[in-house]
């Protein structure tokens, strides 16, 4: 188990900044630019760690709690999540609820640390974050219910276990495809990607996640970026495992498969970001309600 934990931590710590790099590269290629190097997020992190802090007069200790919780939560949640063929390092009945609620804790502190600055822009970001996430949460739970329906177990490890490949070939393939689509939307929302949020926009009024961390600086901002990348990896691993339920039994091959899947997901996100426009903000809740209903429909399909 200890080996598994170390392996999961290593994958998470080393690989996670690669994904934003891949997304940025894909977008650059679509725009006809060469773009920043793939490893740019690593350089950014290293640079931020060396920089000094600047704090607003208004802030308190809660301001720093946001990045800290935002980093610790993905590290813990990753232990519950099977990484491709590599099983979860910790697995127990009901860990899927803990998984969802851990990210809730991170959201609480990220939003609180945004409000700590007293800026109305950051307040806007915090509202949007908590609003959209609380609409995305039922979708996630519906998707987990669909997975749990045929799995006869309540651990993420078994829901996304070897039996999943067989379910794709049974009559449940349709609902699995549906929840894969819904989970992709959840990944996009939770990680603040286009079409729900534009991480590269220049107007604070329209941002969600980026505006919440506007006042962070130096190592704290580094932690924020690192935590966001890890969150993308952990949630992405869920989707990758759902779509690619292959298992070779060999650690290295499984790892390779996971990396390939994650890079594929990042490219897909990059393509979506390059080809779609950001949704108008009032439309986002409608889309999220739509995905919730879609996942509920997937549940109906699997139940009949």
């Amino acid at each position: 188990m200890l080996g598994r934990i170390v392996l999961h931590l290593l994958v998470l710590l080393i690989l996670s900044p690669l994904l934003p790099g891949v997304i940025a590269k894909t977008k650059a290629l679509f725009a006809g630019r060469i773009g920043a190097p793939l490893l740019q997020p690593y350089y950014d992190l290293a640079r931020l760690m060396r920089k000094e802090f600047i704090f607003s007069r208004t802030t308190t200790w809660v301001f720093l709690a946001g990045p800290v919780v935002g980093l610790v939560v993905p590290l813990l949640a990753a232990q519950l999540m099977p990484f491709g063929g590599l099983g979860a390092s910790l697995s127990f009945r009901g860990d899927l609820v803990l998984f969802v609620y851990l990210f809730g804790l991170a959201r609480f502190f990220t939003a609180a640390s945004a409000l700590d600055t007293g800026s109305s822009f950051e307040g806007m970001g915090a509202v949007r974050e908590v609003t959209f996430s609380c609409l995305a949460e039922p979708t996630l739970l519906f998707a987990l219910l669909v997975l749990a329906c045929g799995a006869d177990s309540l651990t993420l490890n078994d829901l996304l276990g070897p039996a999943l490949a067989g379910r794709w070939h049974s009559g449940q393939a349709a609902s699995l495809a549906l929840i894969a689509v819904c989970l992709f939307v959840v990944v996009l929302v939770e990680n603040s990607r286009i079409p729900f949020d534009d991480p590269n926009t220049h107007l604070e009024l329209t941002m969600i996640h980026e505006v919440m961390v506007l006042d962070h600086s130096g190592p704290a901002f580094g932690l924020v970026l690192y935590g966001a990348a890890m969150k993308l990896l952990v949630l992405g691993a869920l989707l990758v495992r759902l779509v690619l339920p292959l298992q070779t039994g060999h650690v290295l091959l499984d790892l390779l498969l996971l990396v390939a899947g994650l890079v594929g997901l990042a490219v897909l996100i990059g393509v979506v970001e390059s080809t779609m426009a950001r949704l108008r903000l009032p439309r986002v809740p409608q889309v999220l309600v739509g995905t919730t209903l879609l996942s509920a429909f997937a549940l109906v399909l699997v139940l009949r």
Binding site: E52, V72, V73, T117
Partner: peptide
């Protein structure tokens, strides 16, 4: 428990690192 300990440790590290940082500027008003 791991969550509590992890947050406290990382928080203590960040707090120590930022202890000398100035708190003179106002919040960025965009």
């Amino acid at each position: 428990w791991v969550l509590v300990v992890g947050v406290l440790l990382l928080g203590a590290w960040l707090h120590r690192k930022s202890a000398t940082a100035p708190r003179e500027v106002g919040t960025w008003g965009c």
